[in-house]
């Protein structure tokens, strides 16, 4: 396609995708760093499957998708966090059970109510065409809340992530901050699913943090680098997918992968 950048930006769906994509990328990268370090990487994946189940339900009942899925995913986030620490099933197993069950329920519900429609298809693989202006506003509001809370509790989130027992022992309410992390993750996952799709949203959360950790060595530099690089990958991915006419979510993940490889090489050279 030979559209100029200006022409590309004049498409309303591209504007919406960028307006939603950039703040979601920021949120995902910031939370991702904590989730990776707390060994919760798979929670994002589990939550996205729960999100899909919730969307299928919403579609079957003819309800607004985001308004239904947000509370369900938040509740599951708390639930996952709880069972992944104090139960007889270990964390990995618990997440696998929850995520595959949610996906299965979603698929059963859809097949009863008439098969996969375009909405659900786009939630599975992500679509920037499905964003309504209402979604855009809601996403912006929620992203600002996530960013604000993250910045406000930044130091405490660091402390709880680095050493939960120390925080608890010295009188910081570590459990409350874990809840905060779970809540923010749930919101980010639901918002990110719109563009990335259920199957790929967890990579938006995990990739930037892991990539940044190849090269950077302090928490702050990892967080900042992850945020910048996540936004860069989402914007590049969106533009590339427009010109190459490829699936948006998948293109973004591929750009992330390229970044990861480059950072790994740089990190390897730096270490030597």
């Amino acid at each position: 396609m030979d559209y100029s950048i200006n022409q590309m930006l004049s498409f309303e769906f591209m504007q919406r995708a960028l307006i939603v994509g950039i703040p979601v990328a920021l949120c995902a990268a910031l939370l991702g760093v904590s989730l990776i370090l707390k060994r919760y990487s798979m929670i994002g994946d589990g939550l996205s499957h729960v999100g899909f189940g919730a969307l299928a339900l919403a579609a079957a009942l003819n309800l607004a998708p985001l308004q239904v899925s947000i509370p369900i995913v938040i509740i599951s986030a708390f639930f996952l966090l709880r069972i992944s620490r104090n139960s007889k099933i270990n964390g990995d197993g618990a997440i696998a059970i929850v995520s595959s069950s949610a996906l299965a329920i979603g698929i059963v519900v859809t097949s009863i109510t008439g098969g996969l429609n375009t909405d659900l298809y786009s939630y599975l693989f992500g679509s920037i065409l499905a964003l309504s202006s209402k979604d855009v506003v809601l996403s912006l509001v929620l992203c600002s809340i996530v960013l604000f809370i993250y910045v406000f509790f930044y130091n405490k989130i660091f402390s709880v992530t680095f050493d939960e027992n120390f925080s608890l022992a010295t009188g910081t309410n570590a459990k409350a901050y874990n809840m905060v992390i779970a809540l923010l993750t749930a919101l980010t996952v639901v918002l990110g699913m719109q563009i990335m799709g259920t199957l790929l949203i967890s990579s938006l959360i995990i990739f930037p943090g892991l990539t940044a950790m190849r090269v950077f060595k302090s928490y702050k530099s990892v967080v900042i680098s992850a945020a910048i690089q996540s936004v860069f990958c989402v914007v590049t991915g969106l533009i590339l997918s427009f010109y190459l006419q490829t699936a948006t979510g998948a293109t973004i993940v591929c750009v992330n992968l390229v970044c990861f490889i480059i950072f790994s090489i740089v990190g390897f050279i730096k270490e030597r």
Partner: peptide, 29 residues
């Protein structure tokens, strides 16, 4: 007002954090 030096956990060993960041976090309580 209690200070605590825990046994090291495997998580801490590969955590990207500068010494200053770790020490500062002790003042949070």
């Amino acid at each position: 007002e209690i200070g605590y030096l825990p046994q090291q956990s495997p998580v801490q060993r590969d955590f990207p954090a500068s010494v200053y960041e770790v020490v500062l976090s002790g003042t949070l309580n």
